[in-house]
Amino acid sequence: MQVTWGNVTVTFSNPEEAKKYAEKVARKLGGQVELHNGQFRIK
């Protein structure tokens, strides 16, 4: 499962870890987490 924002992509084998990481990054950037085609995207 991947977490992407800007031109950065981070890949996780565990979807739960990916979700936690995406939420943490979104909080830092003041963005929203979207699940899109099996990727968490931060907008």
Rank of each mutant, 00 (worst) to 15 (best):
T4F: 07
K24R: 13
R27Q: 14
V3D: 00
A18R: 00
G6Q: 06
H36I: 15
G38W: 03
V33G: 00
I42D: 01
T4I: 14
K28P: 02
N37E: 11
A26N: 02
L35I: 13
F12M: 04
E16F: 11
A22L: 04
V25M: 13
I42L: 03
Q2T: 14
E16V: 13
K19R: 15
V8N: 09
R41L: 15
R41C: 08
E17F: 09
Q2L: 09
V10P: 00
V3E: 00
I42G: 01
G31H: 06
S13H: 12
G30C: 10
E17G: 06
E34L: 07
Y21D: 00
F12A: 01
K43T: 15
E23V: 07
G38E: 04
V8E: 06
E34W: 07
E23I: 10
L29D: 02
A18I: 02
A26C: 05
N7E: 08
G6E: 06
K20R: 14
G6C: 13
A26M: 03
N37I: 03
K19M: 10
V10L: 12
V25N: 01
L35A: 06
S13W: 08
E17A: 14
P15G: 09
Y21A: 03
G31Q: 05
E17L: 13
L35K: 06
G31F: 06
Q39F: 07
L29Y: 11
E34D: 06
T9Q: 05
E34M: 07
L29M: 08
T4P: 01
K28E: 13
L35W: 10
K24C: 15
N37F: 05
R41T: 15
L35G: 04
K19T: 04
L29H: 07
W5E: 01
V33N: 00
T11Q: 10
E34V: 13
N37L: 07
G31W: 07
A18F: 02
V8Y: 13
V25Q: 05
K19C: 10
A22S: 03
G38H: 15
E34R: 04
Y21W: 09
A26P: 00
K24V: 10
N14T: 13
V25R: 03
E23A: 07
V3N: 00
G30S: 05
G38C: 09
E23D: 11
A26Y: 02
K43D: 07
Q32W: 15
I42H: 02
G30Y: 05
V33C: 05
R27G: 08
H36L: 14
G31E: 03
V10N: 03
N37K: 07
T4W: 05
K43Y: 13
I42Q: 01
G38D: 06
H36R: 08
R41Y: 15
K20N: 10
V3L: 03
F12V: 02
M1I: 15
Q32F: 15
G38I: 02
R27D: 09
V8W: 13
G38S: 04
Y21V: 04
F40H: 03
K19Q: 10
S13M: 11
R27K: 14
R41N: 10
M1V: 15
N7L: 07
E16W: 11
T4S: 13
G31N: 02
G30W: 04
A26L: 04
S13E: 12
A26S: 04
K24I: 11
T4L: 09
G30M: 06
L35P: 03
G31R: 04
N37W: 03
A22G: 02
V33F: 05
R41F: 15
R27L: 14
E16Q: 11
F40T: 01
V3S: 00
R41V: 15
S13R: 13
S13G: 10
W5R: 02
L29E: 04
N37G: 08
V10T: 05
V3M: 02
E16A: 12
L29S: 07
T9K: 06
K24D: 13
K20E: 12
H36Q: 10
K43I: 15
R41D: 04
F12Y: 03
Q39E: 14
V10E: 04
G38M: 04
Q39M: 09
F40K: 01
G6L: 08
T4M: 09
K43V: 15
R41E: 10
S13T: 13
R27V: 10
L29C: 09
T9N: 05
V3I: 04
V33I: 10
I42A: 00
E23C: 06
Q32T: 15
V3G: 01
S13Q: 13
W5Y: 10
F12R: 01
E34S: 07
A26I: 03
V10S: 03
L35T: 07
M1F: 15
G38A: 03
